[in-house]
Amino acid sequence: MDLERPVPVPDEVSAPFWDACNEGRLIVQSCDPCEWLQYPPAKTCTECDSADNLSWREVSGRGTINGYIVIHDSRLRVWVPVQPYNVAVVELEEDPTINFFSNLPGTAPDEVPVGSKVEVEFISVSDTQKIPEWRVVEG
């Protein structure tokens, strides 16, 4: 897959996440009293609606592929030239209700090994920004 991915624009809430990606760390928000992890990040805990106990927690970067789709008719201009492409959903090891998108670089369209273990890696999408991607480590 050879494309210029859209570059995320960090905002007040998301900036720590994207900064951590640039440092090679995967972090998610945590609300300790709720024992609640959340991604994408939000201004408040989506369980208790409070911002008082939100913090960032580094996670293992390990997960499992639980399913996928193959996009043949993207609405996103920069993705059209590389159709068809996989969009897999990765469940986080620490909390399977947290999920991440992945294109599984190197995996052919529609040949996604569902159930496989994956690990995060960070790929550059611009001179200043990396994003999390995932690679299969165990079938």
Partner: peptide, 17 residues
């Protein structure tokens, strides 16, 4: 070419059909 707002969590992975 950029992904602002909610699209920062989808568009870098092409989730948009």
């Amino acid at each position: 070419d950029i992904a602002p707002g909610a699209s920062q969590w989808t568009n870098p992975w092409g989730f948009g059909a």
